[in-house]
Computed example of a mutant assay.
Amino acid sequence: MSIEHPHPDLVADPTAGEEAAPEIHADAAAVRAEEIALLRRKVDGISVFLAGPSNVVLQLAWPEVGYGVVESKVDSGKVTQHPFKRFRTTIGYLSIALLGSDEQRTAFRKAIDGQHRQVRSTPDSPVKYNAFNRDLQLWVASCIYYGTIDIFTRMHGPLTPHEEAVVLRAGARIGTTLQVHPDDWHQTPADFWRYWEEGLARCHIDDRVGSYLVSLMKVEIMPKPVARLAGPANLWFNNGFLPQSIRDQLGLSWSDADQRRHDRILRGLGRVTRRAPHVVRAFPMNAMAWNLEVRRRLGRPMV
Rank of each mutant, 00 (worst) to 15 (best):
H262L: 05
M288C: 14
D102W: 04
V303M: 10
L213D: 05
A141W: 02
R274W: 02
R297I: 01
R105T: 03
P182R: 12
R120F: 05
R295L: 04
K218N: 12
C203L: 08
F49R: 01
P161N: 11
G175R: 14
G92K: 11
N130L: 06
W196T: 11
R154K: 15
D191P: 00
E19A: 15
H204T: 00
S125T: 04
P63I: 08
P223G: 06
G92D: 07
A51I: 03
R109E: 03
R86M: 14
K73G: 05
D191F: 11
A61S: 13
E163I: 09
L269C: 13
H116Q: 05
W185T: 12
H25R: 14
A227W: 05
T90N: 09
A28E: 05
A172N: 03
K128A: 11
A37M: 06
A12E: 05
H116E: 02
L168I: 08
V11P: 00
R173Q: 12
R134W: 01
E19Y: 03
K73T: 06
A51N: 06
L99N: 05
N130V: 03
I144S: 01
R261T: 12
G68M: 08
D27F: 08
N239W: 01
L178M: 15
G231I: 03
Q59Y: 06
P301R: 15
